[in-house]
Write a protein that binds this DNA or RNA. Structure first.
Lengths: 347, 347
DNA sequence: TTGTAGGCGTTATCAG
DNA sequence: CTGATAACGCCTACAA
């Protein structure tokens, strides 16, 4: 199981290294007879180019760009910066450069503007959150024209558009939430709380709700009653009022499933009255963690934004450097987080 | 933020590349004055050697050996083979060769024999499961003498002996189990079932029990009653009898915490009588998964043997190839697995 | 169409 | 003690 080099092949085929290289890369300008000799050898042995040597010479710096919502406005995105730094560190010797660009997730125009701006920096690849489907598709099309590779994470986009999605199965994550609720409650009335911030794509939350309901439907029981409510969160006061009036209308509710990372605002609203309501939500943002540890939140499902970025960038780097294939879809496991295992997830 | 090379440093210091190399590698044979000039430059800039070039030159094949229990006898170890293949694939171009060696986990002598055998193959590093502390230490000492790097996974070993442990915080994992039990039961009588197979090191299971009990102690409540039992599993018949007689003596038990991967034998024993006992256990072995999906097991904690091997080998490979530091301890998150998220963990 | 020469950054060797 | 030089495997350019 010898490791063959171009030199070896050249020797075996009785030609020069240059000719072998031309055959390997199909650059043409090779006589039939030489081509035959070389391909014969190539079929006999298993040649794999040494990716290290390739890179040493090329000496090109690959530019990767990450486009994601501003973590200042939604701390869900905060851990992503860490992932960017880690990947940058890991691959900087190999000639990988990563730049981060943020947009205001409440403004479609901000996304579009930022993305167009990124394209002008001529990166080799873009890793982005396609929060706004229509605009994202526009950007992807532009990237294709400019020969920029695109990966998306966190939010799904038409497979015609992305070569590579990294995220979670949202439907299934709804089912996980349902299962947890079931384990804790055994029976009762459950409220599904969507906290829309306009910008969030509706499909995102709907998938979770569908999964959640499908679990209880498949139980085939009358033990549960499920109601959905859409709320807005602009000011805490009006939010609290809306939520509490929802609870007044549904006084038996003993479980709430919060479909985005804002479980903590529900906890804070509930503080205004004594209650023993189980809460299942999403994401390890600071306030959620605090309430989880205090026992106010029962379970959180971890959407792992950091790992998503880490994986997405690693794939791109290894694609450029080592010709690795990028899987078209990577669904990360749905981690269930409680007060007792949360620390292990905060790296 | 320029990338400096040895050539650059040589130029800046007004010496030759050779001298810089000698300073960098502390080979001596450098005049005080040259040493000073070079170190001065080195302090001013941030030089990081290019691992690619180094590897290209060295062109050595690094041999890694993995020593672990036979998966034929305990399927817990099955996924490890997959990890070995993956890492091998990923790094084979870079000159990494991995060999797997298994031992019979029920025989101390088998471990010792296998390990000694491995040492004669002169690997550059060994990744092993130090199931038997005393013998493992002996092996580590031998490795040190032979300049073989050692990493351990799954089971902890004295930090004097290993440079590198990959596994989980067992105490905390006991607490996680307790938390889950608490969520499901609210109150009641709980049995902790240790299924010793002699070979398993007692400390392993004791840590889990300690964590489990500590959680309930910190609740400061009288709602729970906890009893421990040690069982042997040689034949299912005698095991079932022992377990059932334990239940007869403790008729109120409504939760069982199984501290190793054999939850399924408990499920099978319980089948002999109608019962509604919550079960929390460990590990995604085939039968456990089946019972989890059928609702016979409530929660499993995933000890991730595959990831442990994957991480352990990756670290070693990157240590040799790219001079990466190996963290002295990597504690993997404690994944909570239910019927709804189990598929995501079976890669 | 082909072969050869040179260079990427590092290391090892050898002559000075 | 030091500096020049060759080599690792691949790719590009240029000369034949």
């Amino acid at each position: 199981m010898k490791k063959y080099t171009i030199k070896d092949i050249a020797q075996l085929a009785g030609v020069s290294k240059g000719t072998v290289d031309r055959v390997l890369h199909k650059r043409g300008k090779v006589s039939e007879i030489a081509l035959e000799k070389v391909t014969k050898i190539l079929n006999e042995i298993e040649y794999k180019p040494n990716p290290i040597a390739k890179n040493l010479k090329i000496n090109k710096i690959y530019k990767l760009a990450v486009i994601l919502p501003d973590a200042q406005k939604d701390s869900y995105w905060e851990p992503c910066s860490g992932a960017i730094k880690e990947v940058e560190n890991e691959f900087q010797h190999f000639g990988i450069e990563i730049n981060k660009f943020v947009f205001d997730a409440s403004e479609t125009s901000s996304f579009l503007e930022t993305s167009l701006n990124v394209i002008t920096t001529k990166p080799d690849a873009i890793l982005m959150v396609p929060l706004f489907q229509k605009e994202a598709k526009e950007i992807v099309t532009k990237c294709n024209i400019n020969n920029i590779k695109v990966s998306v994470f966190n939010n799904y986009i038409d497979s015609n558009y992305s070569n590579n999605f990294i995220g979670q199965d949202l439907y299934q994550s709804g089912r996980v939430a349902a299962k947890l609720m079931d384990m804790v409650l055994k029976k009762g009335t459950i409220g599904i709380v969507h906290i829309d911030e306009d910008y969030q794509n509706a499909t995102h939350l709907q998938e979770k709700e569908k999964g959640f309901r499908s679990y209880f439907n498949s139980l085939n029981t009358l033990d549960y009653d499920i109601t959905t409510i859409h709320l807005n969160y602009k000011k805490s006061e009006s939010f609290n009022n809306s939520l509490l009036s929802f609870l007044d209308k549904n006084p038996n509710i003993n479980g709430i499933f919060v479909t985005i990372s804002k479980s903590y605002v529900v906890v804070e609203a509930l503080k205004e009255r004594a209650s023993d309501i189980a809460i299942v939500g999403y994401d390890l943002v600071k306030k959620n963690i605090d309430y989880l540890k205090q026992g106010e939140i029962d379970f959180l499902i971890h959407q792992k934004p950091k790992q998503q970025v880490y994986m997405g960038l690693s794939y791109l780097a290894e694609y450029f450097l080592f010709d690795k294939e990028i899987p078209s879809q990577l669904l990360l496991p749905l981690d269930i987080v409680t007060s007792e295992n949360v620390d292990g997830y905060l790296m």
